[in-house]
């Protein structure tokens, strides 16, 4: 089994989402740990559409594998700019490239304070390895 990746430029939530912040734009996806635990992903459904406002902790999507299902929460507040439609039918992209082409939603940050709650890569790795 290949070692799991924890890119250092990202922030991580306890519920296994990652966030990449560029200016006031945040991209969100699920971590390598999460895709590995879920195994082959077969379905993604978005709970939000572009333009929707979300609060920190709101569900934005649901991902499914053969024998598991997981809700994806936005750890930060903002306005949804885009959802990754390219994943429909190509859900294995999340398994192959969770931090790149496997992103789920992009949002415009309305309140950056939520970011402070998130873990850095080292803390998240420690957290994952203790589970």
């Amino acid at each position: 089994m290949a070692a799991l990746n924890y890119p250092s430029d990202l922030k991580y939530a306890k519920s296994d989402e990652w966030v990449r912040v560029e200016g006031d734009i945040a991209t969100l996806g699920i971590s390598d740990y999460a895709q590995d635990a879920l195994n082959d992903l077969t379905y993604v459904e978005y709970a939000v559409e572009p333009g929707a406002k979300v609060a920190a902790g709101d569900a934005v999507a649901e991902v499914e594998s053969v024998k598991a299902s997981s809700e994806i929460y936005s750890p930060i507040a903002g306005e949804i700019l885009a959802v990754n439609e390219a994943l429909k039918g190509e859900e294995d992209t999340i398994n192959a490239d969770p931090y790149g082409k496997g992103w789920l939603v992009k949002l415009r940050l309305s309140d950056a304070s939520g970011l402070a709650e998130l873990m850095d890569a080292a803390a998240y790795q420690t957290y994952c390895e203790s589970r």
Partner: peptide, 12 residues
């Protein structure tokens, strides 16, 4: 489509 079912989704 097993993830719809109670043994996986439980209270959801």
């Amino acid at each position: 489509l097993r993830p719809r079912e109670q043994d996986i989704k439980r209270e959801k």
